[in-house]
């Protein structure tokens, strides 16, 4: 037995006639942060939506803690312990910050512990405590990102799916968000599948990484090795090294720029 909490095998998902991800296989180990890197349109969001049941794969198998997930509804998947933090800060705009957080705990039965967790979340995100009574639609983008992260924590999930949590945030907020992601992983032992375009931050926070291009996984390795790879440095981290190799090794380099 491995200690994989989530495995995907040969997943293919379509938008109508368009094949968005092709033959995706990946593993997430318990207690680890695993990252998927890829440019805009590579298929990162589609992978997460397929895991959480918002999209149904045409082919392949998804296994989460011994249960098959493909063909299940998103609410079922959520009840089994996967918290999906979608891209674009999907708050409930007319509910207060606190109501949003409590919605995160909607499926939990241990209502007493929920209140303790609320304090934990407020401890992670001080600004949310200050604004607990405000309508969440009035928060800034960075605050909303904190809210959706905190809301996912309230579910006490066994696995978090994070879709580009740093997108569109100012550098200061980006640093904050990644600090919190790391703290969640080390302190709460939270397992996470993190999707990012910000390769720098993602590789520094994660243990293992997959590189996605046009719906296919083109590379996978420990983040340490990925960070040392010239291709990753050049095309994802923006570090250009002098040398002959790494010029045109990937055919579609224009797509990752």
């Amino acid at each position: 037995m491995s200690d994989n909490i989530l495995t995907l095998r040969n997943i293919e998902t379509y938008y109508g006639p368009i094949l968005a991800i092709r033959g995706i296989s990946l593993d997430v180990q318990k207690g680890k942060i695993v990252t998927i890197l890829g440019a805009n349109g590579a298929g990162k969001t589609t992978i997460l939506k397929t895991i959480s049941g918002a999209m149904v794969p045409q082919k392949g198998k998804i296994e989460f803690m011994g249960r098959e997930l493909q063909k299940q509804n998103p609410d079922w998947v959520a009840r089994k312990g996967i918290a999906h933090v979608p891209e674009g800060r999907e708050v409930f705009p007319l509910l207060s910050v606190q109501e949003n957080l409590l919605m995160g705990a909607y499926v939990r039965k241990d209502k007493k512990k929920v209140n303790e967790d609320l304090e934990v979340v407020y401890d992670y995100f001080r600004v949310l405590k200050e604004r607990s009574k405000q309508k969440s639609g009035l928060l800034s983008g960075g605050e909303q990102q904190m809210l959706v992260l905190g809301r996912a924590m309230m579910a006490r999930p066994k696995l978090m799916l994070l879709d580009e949590p740093s997108l569109g945030l100012s550098p200061l907020f980006v640093q904050d968000i990644f600090n919190i992601i790391k703290r969640l992983n080390t302190v709460q032992k939270m397992t996470m599948l993190l999707v990012e375009q910000n390769a720098n931050m993602a590789l520094q926070s994660s243990a293992y990484g997959y590189v996605l291009e046009n719906g296919r996984i083109v590379m996978e390795d420990t983040c340490e090795n990925l960070m040392a790879s010239d291709d990753i440095k050049e095309f994802y981290m923006g570090i250009k090294e002098e040398g002959v190799r790494g010029k045109r090794r990937w055919k579609k380099r224009k797509t990752w720029r």
Partner: peptide, 13 residues
């Protein structure tokens, strides 16, 4: 207010 997010919270929408 947000159907998909509600699904993600485990609400049988």
């Amino acid at each position: 207010q947000n159907q998909l997010a509600a699904y993600y919270m485990g609400v049988p929408v």
